[in-house]
Design a protein around this nucleic acid. Structure first.
Lengths: 249, 249
DNA sequence: CTTGCAGGATTGTTCAACAATCCCTACGCT
DNA sequence: AGCGTAGGGATTGTTGAACAATCCTGCAAG
């Protein structure tokens, strides 16, 4: 890139789009492909918390080498979806109440900061940046109407991911991705997705409307209370469940 | 909060210390050991940004297999200390101004939230939790007196790491570790560590004293301004440097 | 000056083997 | 019987070699 010039902005963003497409087509392949499959299995609950992932077993299923599989394990480990126990293997982590508190602490810090920070850059922010949020809100409402509560949960997650996306921070995006993946891990312990997700459909909409009206401080306060409430709700649901299925030894 | 068993705290932290020592002794060995060495080489500037890390070359130096070395690469990649370019190898990333803004955005969100959050849990917080911070402040002052400016930078980093540590959040700790490692990457581009670090010696002390006096809101406001100023300072220093050593072709 | 094509070098991935460690069971001792 | 311990089997950690795919360099042709 040696041709300097202000005129170049248009072409540069164009090149960036192409580059992104190329990167998507031939991504590191085997290892990441295996990781994708495992990620879905975990986040969708096929692999319950505490389960061990045998290497030889998965090499056959995924049709990759053991080394490549281990690389996939490393990827997921750093997303918080797997934990390594030295000389014992990889396991789906079993999160406890302390993790709930930890995760929500982070969520609050990040999301509230993003919303509050929107006030400082309001003029730059095009209105259509809120469109993904709007879509997620409507998707959640539609899924709720069809009694598809896991889909409501997914739409809710996407809403918050898109909310973070407003900050244009690659690191916040990555971090939120991991954070929400871990949260999804927690949801599978809870058997009543409806009571869990239902209250947040309306809250997401009202939050969206506050953003649309550019009442950012109000939105931030609302979001804070929102997350405090959500944490409390999950904690209690989690404890009830925890007392229900403890050790069987 | 709730949770009984206040008496148990002493023993629990004791066990945790032992467990940490044990874990340090027989850690995943080869791959992580190799990663440790590389991490130091990178954060201390031996490997400049943009440098490529040859596989065959490093297998000889580190005396590990290529597969193990690649696992070490993956570890560092997810810490942001290396970047993979498909079929071309691993490189020390070259961060730009956008990364500075991104990193500082995160720092502000996390650190300010931690300090502000201390107000809510003040009664629980033992006074000796502030000791590590105090040590770091004095270490920075001592290093400055001896004209050892890189050491000042290290002490400054530790100060902020310990600051985050007050939140008792494992995820915030890990995140901050990666964040500061990336920042260290940036510092090596800047040739004048003195001008960079000197102003923060006094600011760290005053921040510490505010914390000691439990004036958390005031400390949070101070820290926010602190980080804004630091970001601006690094941005300008970075730009001056960027115009100084661009193309050599 | 650009285009096209070898050749060499480097990375991506697999495979098979061995060493190290963990888990479990069975044995021997008090 | 109870308890510590040694052995066997399974699993992970690590290695080295091998092959395919891709990138970079230099050179020749248009």
């Amino acid at each position: 890139m040696s041709t300097g010039g202000a005129e170049e902005t248009g072409r540069q963003s164009w090149l960036r789009t192409v580059a992104a497409d190329v990167a998507r087509l031939d991504r590191s392949s085997s290892a990441e492909r295996a990781a994708d499959i495992l990620r879905r299995s975990i986040t969708e609950g096929a692999l319950p918390p505490g389960a061990q992932l045998s290497e030889v077993e998965l090499t056959e299923v995924l049709e990759v080498s053991r080394n490549t599989l281990r690389e996939a394990f490393r990827l997921l480990t750093h997303e918080g979806l797997l934990v390594y126990k030295l000389h014992r293997g990889v396991f789906v982590p079993e999160l406890d109440e302390h993790d709930v508190i930890d995760l929500y602490r982070l969520r609050r810090a990040l999301e509230v900061d993003v919303v509050r920070g929107l006030a400082d850059r309001d003029p730059e922010l095009p209105a259509d940046r809120l469109e993904p949020l709007h879509d997620d809100v409507e998707a959640a409402e539609a899924a709720a109407g069809a009694d598809r509560w896991p889909a409501v949960g997914t739409a809710n997650m996407r809403f918050h991911q898109h909310l973070i996306g407003l900050a244009d921070s690659a690191r916040m995006d990555a971090m939120t991705g991991r954070l929400l993946a871990e949260l999804r891990l927690l949801f599978h312990v809870i058997a009543t997705p409806r009571e869990l997700h239902e209250p947040y459909i309306a809250r997401n909409r009202s939050l969206f409307e506050l953003l649309e009206a550019r009442k950012y401080d109000e939105a931030a306060a609302d979001l804070h209370e929102y997350l405090i409430d959500s944490e409390r709700r999950i904690l209690t649901a989690f404890r009830d469940k925890g007392l229900q299925s403890p050790r069987t030894t």
